[in-house]
Amino acid sequence: MIGFIARRLAAGVVLLAGISALAFFLLYLGSGNIARKILGEGATPQAIAQENRRLGLDQSLPAQFGHWAAGALRGNFGVSWFSGQPVMQAITSRLAVTLSLVICAVLLAAVLSVVLGVLAATRRGSVDRVTQLLSLLGHAIPGFLIAVFLVLVFALNLHWFKPTGYVPFTTSLAGWASSVTLPVIALCLGSVAGVTQQIRGGIIDALRDDYVRTLRSRGLSERRIVLKHVLRNTAGPALAILAVQFVGLLGGVVIIEQVFAIPGIGQVAVQAATQGDIPLVMGLVVAVAVIVIIFNLLVDLAQGWLNPKVRLS
């Protein structure tokens, strides 16, 4: 197990280095005249040249990447070119906001998917048809449309929630819950649709297996068979899909944060990428890559823990 973790972490480091290099070169290819963007329309050619020197943009591309990588290895990701804020500070103050949204969305998606998947697979009939219809709608309707709908109904008409903004957990638990409820619902519905279908299909297949017939012949109740045995067998594939959804949600949260004006990394990622704020974009790329690598490792370990057939030794 330790060897497996070490190998995966080593692969993660290589992956991280590759992603960083690729992102850095792509950003420089598409960023245009950064000094002009920073200084604006009134900047003189002399000011632009001075700004380029200050940012190190007058050096060769490999030299610039080397400079950035040397700083990153020491934990120094530089300063945002457009706000002057240290990149680490900009990311850490926002990453937790985004993670709280995404993790809450994944947890909610997991719970709802299990409930809906089990109901659809065991009840069948109209319950199954309604669940499938809802799954189809969840797939078909984009998250931002759901977000706009939720704001319109629950914030602007019913006044149950505030339409925009974020309240930190430590400021007010109720305020935090209120501020994340609509974004989390908007974010998770697409995931619920996918995972529900996976669980439903897995349970229907498993209920036809020989081991289920054996369990029934032993006199176990259907409820116990589904919840203790069948659900466990379907948990592996569902967990794998949920892991993919987690990565997808880290991307999808960008739009949701825009709609709800939430100060997460999605909002700053859009701004930084649009402006060409390379230090900040690079910091975000590394942060998200690290999260994805660690999350995938945890999912692999969880898979092995839940299912002896894929247990790693």
Partner: peptide, 30 residues
Amino acid sequence: KAAAVSAALAALAITGCTSYASTGGAAGTG
């Protein structure tokens, strides 16, 4: 085991929620 997984994810979520304040940032947008 299932309970432990849920608890771990919940703890992670809470960590994510609370670490925001510990980093000194607090949005006033609400």
